[in-house]
Design a protein around this nucleic acid. Structure first.
Lengths: 231, 231
DNA sequence: CGGTTAGTCAAACATATGTTTAAAATGACA
DNA sequence: TGTCATTTTAAACATATGTTTGACTAACCG
């Protein structure tokens, strides 16, 4: 028996779960199947039976290896956040160190590489991660929002610092709101990327991908955050 | 027996369901309870039993009066969209008629009054409507998005026309994306307004309400849509 | 070999869900 | 008053869900 504690203690859920051969372990198979289904239909909208069927493992495996559905979701997000978070911190640090006063566009562009790296880390990883992030905010009354902000405070702190450096006149309150608007744009757009890309393809025959969408978002949010302060 | 057809045909679901006294009819009681719960916990996250319990009606009443949960959701949105849609159209028309080339900020400000009117139409109506709109986009794999865009095409058409008048240089593709970003910002922000207002209150003792949030969004999205075109 | 351990599996469990049914209540009108 | 359509009600239905159980398997080690 294993992993019956609710405390995640060490959480060994990265990809180093390989057999002697190259057969994926049950745990990894579950993670891989779950992230796609969760991204597509939300956390509430995906059942453990769908996941285990897709992963070709036994239903009980989820509860055996992760303890519960909630813990599975956390493990899922952790896998991406551990990969993404330090890279973003380095990327933001680079921008703020190199330039005395970076432009907002430079600050937001700092997200691009860490996000795209997830595509190498995992097939279609960027898309999946951003979609999961979007789901975290709307599904399950934000228990995951809490999980993220409390386990990865560095993301937010570094980011707000960089924005402040780029636009010092922005008050703390105004920044709080504008950063949330930015978060909304990114996260919400991504949670419906697939549909949007389809529409763009049909309506004006435009071939786009996730990277294309991100590149379009950057000037938008940079301008939004950089909007002149009222009054 | 009533309302067993899946065709909405006439859909008598506005507030003119009153008794001789001022006792709300079952139908209205259900709508009022459902909209709050749906806004709070999403469509998937709210059961008919919670709704009927809150509304103090029998469980079977929902299926009797509306046919199914899905039809209830449509009726819910219809109640607001019928109130909101024509007002927004008039408001946008006013702006585009009065000014030869209105500013983007003027265009977006045209949303303010129609949105705030919902607060008179119904207690906390603005907030509820925007939250429901947000839920429509993330829950239930977008069947409601389809419902809205196909039943109220005027909203989108008038809006894109107004934006084009304010910023003619923006290409159709770029506008498509930026309007979606804008939609994301508004809708997603609103679906977590309550939490945000709490945070704002605690963190820097700022007293805000829904109107305050909308007023903060306007310059943000106006600047975003108005961002200079790349290349 | 015997024994321990981690992992797998089918089945059951307990509960929650949307929907349907058929009987009972209600109210309007002749 | 009696009739009839409308509405309400409790109960059942069918299915779906997260979780648990207990037997079984396979691998490792003395």
């Amino acid at each position: 028996m294993q992993q019956r504690s609710t405390e995640p203690s060490s959480c060994p859920l990265t990809d180093n779960n390989k057999n002697d051969g190259n057969i994926l372990l049950t745990k990894t198979k579950i993670l891989n199947a779950a992230e796609i289904l969760f991204a597509e239909h939300g956390f509430n909208g995906t059942s453990l039976r769908e996941i285990t069927q897709q992963a070709e493992v036994n239903l009980a495996a989820v509860n055996y290896h992760f303890g519960s559905k909630k813990e599975l979701i956390k493990a899922l997000m952790k896998r991406y956040l551990d990969e993404f978070s330090p890279r973003l911190e380095r990327s933001l640090a680079k921008v703020t160190k190199q330039n005395e006063q970076p432009s907002l566009e430079q600050v937001f562009t700092a997200f691009l590489n860490p996000l795209l790296h997830l595509n190498k880390f995992k097939e279609n990883g960027t898309n999946i991660f951003l979609q999961l992030l979007g789901r975290s905010y709307s599904d399950s009354q934000g228990f995951l929002r809490w999980f993220i902000t409390s386990n990865y405070p560095g993301i937010i702190d570094n980011f707000t610092a960089a924005v402040h450096q780029a636009y010092p006149e922005l008050s703390t309150e105004e920044m709080f709101w504008r950063l949330h608007f930015t978060m909304s744009t990114a996260v919400f757009t991504m949670s419906s990327t697939d549909a949007l890309i389809d529409i763009a393809q049909n309506d004006f025959n435009e071939k786009v991908n996730v990277e294309g969408v991100i590149r379009r978002i950057i000037p938008y949010v940079a301008a939004g955050v950089g909007a002149p302060v009222q009054r």
